[in-house]
Amino acid sequence: MELICPAGTPAALKAAVAAGADAVYCGFRDETNARNFPGLNFSRDELRAGIEHAHRGGVRVLVAVNTFPRAGAIEVWHRAVDDAVAAGADALILADLGLLAYAANRHPGQRLHVSVQAAAANPDAIGFYVEAFGVRRVVLPRVLSVPEIAAIVREIDCETEVFVFGGLCVMAEGRCSLSSYATGQSPNMQGVCSPAGHVRYEERDGRMLSRLGRFTINAFGPGEAAGYPTLCKGRFATDLGTGYLFEDPVSLDAASLLPALRDAGVTALKIEGRQRSRAYTERVVGGFRDALAALAAGREIDTAALADLTEGQATTAGAYRKTWR
């Protein structure tokens, strides 16, 4: 299975290449990709140089243009597609139907992948993308169990890529409006869930409050591990009590499921975290490269090596191994 690794900066790209990535994914420094954070991502020149560097090391570069274009500004997204192709991208990761059509028509030889932001979670949806646009791979949303993935793989005519580590979105990806409701900015169109300009932290009475827009979404006690300031990981007061309703602050870690994912016929394993540092990239890529080597050699896979990097200092197998609470 291929190892697909995140790069939020040229330094992280180099770290991923050095640590053993098969491919690196990245995006432009604007709203055309779903990690549009301050100081992150690539200029056109940086992308060209990054692709040259990766190719010298035998590593492919996949460029995410995976937000949904705003009406009246489609040229921003078209330019991103054209510039990524011109820079030598090995594949484009796209979510919007119109943008997929544009890329397929304008650059017929270009390899196209369906982004997780498209939330293509069944054979019919995936089959449509293959038939209409000739896509070669689909990144599956993080809501499927391993048996469901195996069933999908049997029925489709393209490769599959699944997340194995990092941030965990349990929503219908590309369609979630929780952050939009709180901030007025859309993760699906502006490319940022919980935009930093709307996030505030405050120490009060020994607790750390995290706020998004006008909402206090969590309060962490002294020494309690924290998570990202997203509404889906907020604590909510309800008639049944106060607690996490949608999702705990926790990171996906599917290292223990690598044998099952291989047996399911998955093509590629994706590490989330373009917003993280080169230290994260180096360690997680190295950790999963070791895990894949252990898998190939029939050795036991170390499943605790990356625990200190996780959100909330906790891990989950997510929907891959569904259980009831």
Binding site: P249, R276, D308, L309, Q313
Partner: peptide, 10 residues
């Protein structure tokens, strides 16, 4: 060090 991990661990 990863800044997010330092934040998560408080």
């Amino acid at each position: 060090f990863d800044g997010d991990a330092l934040f998560f661990s408080r």
